[in-house]
Design a protein around this nucleic acid. Structure first.
Lengths: 197, 197
DNA sequence: TAATAACGTTAATCTAGTTTAATATTTTAT
DNA sequence: ATAAAATATTAAACTAGATTAACGTTATTA
């Protein structure tokens, strides 16, 4: 089962480091393939996050609920992205975030218990994960920059251009939450954009 | 020279991985010690960033200038922190950010040209940098969360509690810029906080 | 020790985005 | 096909924070 599914992961890794046949086999023997249904939770706020997950298909949202019960979406993940609460994963402390499936979702899961063995067996993976996380960090910093220097309208335009596939698949009120604005205001922005055309 | 100065770096690294005497020597032989004066630039927007820098003493701000000529401070770095434009460093493309010294500053610099050799010579460093950057990424994500769910006043209170040393050393208008608000509004917040006591 | 530059405060006016609430549209299940 | 649930729109009243501009205070330096 994992073998056919694993190919997408191997292709992805191949963009960063090249694994030998044997290394690829070891890797796939250590990770877990799993399907989730729409609505199910991969991580729940308060639990310790046991997995870093590579998305084969489907879509997830990462969010938290603030003291007023308000939901704030931090990121979406689709095919060839990662999803997890990394803060919880690396420190093995309770998660700040929930990760919930917005569609039926197929994952390859790297568990905390095997990842050290995996680094041991395939030292190249240390480099691979370093490079992945470097990219994620840079993206996160750039998002902070945008949140400070762009208006809500410009952030929406950026989002729409950057992630056109995600915009199609996700209800508008979740995009508003991701952008840090209300659904009503996003609705207003969209009607302005249509009018401007 | 680098030997005495290097000890702070070795102590820091020791929190993550343990280097042998020989590895420590190799490391210190490959990195560069350098002093900057207050006001000098370590990185300039538009240049390719050649170094990741560990701060031995002093203080820097990382900022960019937007299209309207407005300065936005992204982070401060003091002793035992890192400073660089990592996005520029890892891709070797022009920097989005400036890094400027707010005090006379001593650094240990890891150049792009030697860092690959260093990973080769001391594979443990791959793990070290992975762990550092994981922590930086988590901190960055949490900052995004705060910027969405906290008011300016609460972000300031958080900053003041989290980085009391930095608050003392830095002019208030720079803290306002870091928080994403105007200096006038921060002034108002502070007077409210005093009044509330 | 005066002068200048850098930094900080206050207050009035303005605006991007929120809140509330009612209505419209689309999707899903029966 | 119809009802119910989920999602989206619109508009009026409101607020956090920006802008402008004038004035105070603290550091630097001549």
């Amino acid at each position: 089962m994992i073998k056919e599914k694993g190919q997408a992961l191997l292709n992805y890794i191949n963009n960063y480091v090249s694994l030998t046949e044997i290394e690829a086999e070891i890797l796939l023997s250590k990770v877990t393939y799993r399907k989730y249904l729409k609505g199910q939770f991969i991580v729940q706020q308060g639990d310790v996050c046991k997995y870093e997950c590579f998305v084969l298909s489907g879509c997830t949202k990462t969010f938290y609920i603030d003291e007023e019960g308000q939901e704030h979406i931090v990121m979406f993940s689709i095919e060839d992205w990662w999803t997890s609460d990394i803060g919880s994963f690396i420190t093995q402390t309770p998660a700040d975030f929930n990760v919930q499936c917005l569609e039926n979702t197929e994952l390859i899961m790297f568990s905390y218990d095997i990842i050290e063995d995996l680094y041991e067996a395939i030292p190249k993976l240390e480099r691979f994960f370093r490079q992945i996380i470097e990219k994620a960090f840079v993206a996160s910093q750039k998002r902070i920059v945008r949140s400070f220097s762009l208006s809500a309208k410009d952030r929406f335009i950026y989002f729409r251009n950057q992630y056109p596939k995600i915009e199609q698949r996700i209800p508008q009120y979740m995009i508003a939450s991701y952008l840090g604005i209300t659904k009503e205001f996003l609705s207003k922005i969209k009607s302005e954009l249509i009018f401007e055309q």
